[in-house]
Design a protein around this nucleic acid. Sequence first.
DNA 1: GGATGTGAATGCATTCACAGCA
DNA 2: TGCTGTGAATGCATTCACATCC
Lengths: 217, 217
Amino acid sequence: MDPSRPESIPDPAVRRISLYLRQLEAFSRKDRRTVSSKQLGESLSLTDAQVRKDLAYFGQFGHPGIGYNVDELITKLRQALGTDKTWNVLLVGAGNLGRALMAYRGFESKGFKLVAVFDGDASKIGKQAGPHLIQPLTELGRTTRAQSIRVAIVAVPAEAAQDVADQLVEAGIRGILNFAPVSLNVPASVTVNSVDLAVQMEQISFAVSLSSIGQPP
Amino acid sequence: MDPSRPESIPDPAVRRISLYLRQLEAFSRKDRRTVSSKQLGESLSLTDAQVRKDLAYFGQFGHPGIGYNVDELITKLRQALGTDKTWNVLLVGAGNLGRALMAYRGFESKGFKLVAVFDGDASKIGKQAGPHLIQPLTELGRTTRAQSIRVAIVAVPAEAAQDVADQLVEAGIRGILNFAPVSLNVPASVTVNSVDLAVQMEQISFAVSLSSIGQPP
DNA sequence: GGATGTGAATGCATTCACAGCA
DNA sequence: TGCTGTGAATGCATTCACATCC
């Protein structure tokens, strides 16, 4: 396997790599030096074989008889995910959710920096949102180019989301994290990842309903 | 296939059912009466066979030569997901994200009602958060029983999340939607669904990095 | 004709199991 | 001995393709 040309890596494996990284960072904070695939797997309820197979997609990072060096693996996985360099990110939508995302301190340490905020609502333009001035969507292209932004977060109402997505694509954005409860239509060259809170809740209610058959509430 | 005894339905299928439901509700708002598996699939970039197979896990809802009746299918899928009745939900964590979730209007129409708010931070206890009084975690058991709450949303810092999860389990909660960036350890009888915003961003940066090999930024 | 529901075939991801190295 | 990396085997999900019904 040639790590510089990842050919095609299964989507589920890429998701787990993020989880390994999160876990490794926790281990590192506790000054742990090495970890085996078995230990890393147990901390996430996965098998050791799964862990080794996933890591092997990206290269040979382990040391037989020893395990993986925690800090070394962190470095390699960040490189693999592309988060060894900082990404400038823009946000569209300065409503409740958008402002909560702006205040969320979990992005910076992971290599993402929010550098611009936009909103389609004219009454919000020019207002301050945390450290950022809220810009109109007409500025998308200019700001995207000026700050080399490739990734956007969409936190607008469902009705506005597709229109916003179209404008983001037009402005040259390559990846979108979408919180609006709609399926966005974009060219294949643009990556969309959607988080629909209602969908998440429905998964839970389904599972809970199933496991409660015959049980009292 | 016996819809009253779903045996075992693939997880990916359950996730898609939520998406079908979301799409069908949009169709219904536009007064659309029927829809074929092909049309429903196209609106979500899925094949018609995939749609039919998924729906068939839950029963025979279609009409050969016609398609599916939109409103009828909505009813059936809500029953399948358990959202034909309203679920009382509690929230732990009245920080930025927690308050944004409280303000989010997308839950009620989907059958979820936020009825109680908790926080581990003593200085917040007794304060008002929207329509709710913030309660201490010691009240979890009492409130859960009093209001028949089975599902909880966790929006606390990573360090506090496992402890909160333990107390939720102790209080009888059966499903948890977790926004803290940690892997929660709970008994098999409890369902956990985690949304880690940093993980979502990393998926995107990976995909964008891949597609940009050799390209200028 | 038009569309569903479903066994059979395919394709992917996970798990097994073991050679090989420290 | 302990643990990795990886072909081979297994198990699941998706897709195909067609009998069936309006």
